[in-house]
Design a protein around this nucleic acid. Structure first.
Lengths: 337, 337
DNA sequence: CTGTTAGCGCGTTCAG
DNA sequence: CTGAACGCGCTAACAG
């Protein structure tokens, strides 16, 4: 390995001078600078980030903790976050805690050993709390990417749930749907929010909210949704003409359940999903509320790097609007008549 | 930050002793050990990995370079690799090069600055070559995860393409299919291999290979496949009763094309995919050749860590068999009669 | 069994 | 404008 010392010797200057030209930390005579730069190039010198980190106290590493990586939504977040970070000279360390508290706890030591400069998390309550507390304690800058505002005073970027739900309901109405059901995970904070805006929009639109048209599931995946919707259909025929699933996987479960009961999609039941994760792979291709993933990821990195630079950086909260992506899973009831 | 020095002072011993108990690097009197341990606990001391790395020369960080993260196959690899690494006390640094040479080149500096202990890559030829050369030059231990044997003398873990194709063809035959088509990317090394085993198995089974039943695509995604299959169907009605797509996305493209031409799936055309990425989300749920992703990922980590420990560790190559996952996209022609 | 000390590679005073 | 020297936190000889 070629060190700063080797460069100094070869260039006939001191290591301090080499350091100065690398970091532009103090004026260096043009001639000396050029000479040093030349030697650096020739010898292929790269500053050793580990030594630098030890001295300066930063590591140029950002930890990103996600609850899952199999879900395409998070994969897309990771992708964006990584690209944004690399541009700024930071490395991404990835941790997937499967939304499990035990795993999260075992990961805490990584935070605690403070060999990261900052942290980004996309986490639900219980795990999120553990992480946030660790960061606060160790004074590690962090930002929350895409989770509802649990920690009011912390930096976070979220998507504006209202815009998405408004568009979804408006679109359904425009297609002649007036009886709209909602499918959601029973105890998801984020989905409760969607539910809230759902009712709000219904009221605004002069539509009645029918409590009977709320279907709740035990889990976040298609299996839980399939079970819930199947149970629902066992008792009664659906009176609604459209259903909004609070994520694409739930909606997939619903599709399978409706199919089992020979209900045609979208002819008899129209569907809208959320997140735009697997929506385009489904059949029929799912109309869904898309998340502004790129914007969210980019902004979260931006805020984090600011916080790292300025320890007193004020907590900043950003919301980005959602966008309905129209595909083939909603029937036009007006045309049909 | 509490350092080893603080602990030493508090415990009334030297830093060397503290270091000894932490690393178990030399015998320490039971009483001293307990005392030190107690102080470490009380003060919440964590060894600083950066300082450790500077001294010892290792960083406990492994770089994993993937060509994409949106593809669920890679997401699953990442997931497994990360879990295996964390168990061994290593962090995963993730780099996604989008299979682009320019991005790969810009990432090379990370390899070159040697602040990683080892590298795992899942890469195609051109990018893979760049990375392999960098590693060889810098003597960084690496292992190739799931790519065909481009670099014969290097450590790699791959899946046994023969087992998968054999099962796929056998299954189709068992369901009464004798006219089988193959859909593959034109210039993919991996898929060429699948094609090779396809022909081989056909011959073994006494089935003819019809050159007309090979459809090639320009890209790896469903759009390229849709275009290719649509073009194919424009000219002629398919004579084959089943088609094997060399990945699930290609097969999805085929499904859409067949649908466009009102061909019923699986009644008129049976389908098999590859990889088990999006297979279960499709309609009909896709029968597909599953990759032994867990085994592959685990083994690659195991080999890499061995190589890190023993620089003269012999290159090791492992193959794991594939497993056909049966779902709903293949019709039983025998029953139908 | 334990303490002292010399670096790992770098950035940064403090003198010149 | 430049160089010598110190120290970041830790480990590993080398002494005791």
């Amino acid at each position: 390995m070629v060190t700063i010392k080797d460069v100094a010797e070869e260039a006939g200057v001191s290591i301090a001078t080499v350091s100065s030209v690398i970091n532009d930390s103090r004026p260096v005579a043009q001639a000396t600078r050029e000479k040093v730069l030349k030697v650096i190039n020739e010898m292929g010198y790269k500053t050793n980030p580990v030594a630098r980190a030890l001295k300066v106290g930063n590591t140029k590493r950002i930890l990103y903790i996600v609850p899952s990586i199999k879900n395409l939504v998070f994969a897309q977040f990771i992708n964006q976050v990584q690209h944004s970070l690399i541009k700024k000279g930071y490395d991404l360390i990835l941790l997937n805690n499967e939304a499990r508290v035990d795993l999260t706890k075992s990961y805490l030591s990584i935070i605690h050993s403070s060999n990261i400069d900052g942290l980004i998390m996309t986490q639900t309550r219980s795990c999120g709390k553990l992480i946030v507390e660790s960061c606060q304690q160790k004074k590690i800058p962090f930002v929350i990417l895409f989770e509802p505002d649990i920690f009011k005073e912390e930096s976070m970027v979220t998507s504006d749930e209202k815009t998405g739900m408004d568009q979804a309901v408006e679109y359904l109405i425009s297609q002649g749907h007036h009886k709209i059901a909602l499918l959601k995970v029973a105890d998801s904070r984020n989905q409760n929010k969607r539910f809230h805006f759902f009712k709000e929009k219904l009221a605004e639109s002069g539509l009645e909210f029918n409590n009977d048209w709320l279907i709740t599931t035990a889990g976040h995946d298609e299996k839980a949704a399939y079970t819930a919707v199947t149970n629902y259909l066992q008792d009664k025929k659906p009176e609604f003409t459209a259903l909004i699933g609070c994520n694409d996987f739930l909606t997939l479960g619903a599709i399978r359940a409706f199919r089992k009961y020979k209900l045609k999609i979208p002819a008899e039941i129209s569907l809208i999903g959320y997140d735009d994760s697997i929506a385009e792979y489904l059949y029929p291709a799912l109309t869904t509320v898309g998340l502004p993933k790129k914007k969210l990821a980019k902004k979260s990195v931006e805020i984090l790097l600011n916080k790292i630079k300025q320890p007193d950086y004020q907590a900043e909260q950003n919301k980005f609007s959602q966008q309905l992506i129209i595909r083939d899973s909603v029937a036009n009831l007006k045309k049909a008549k």
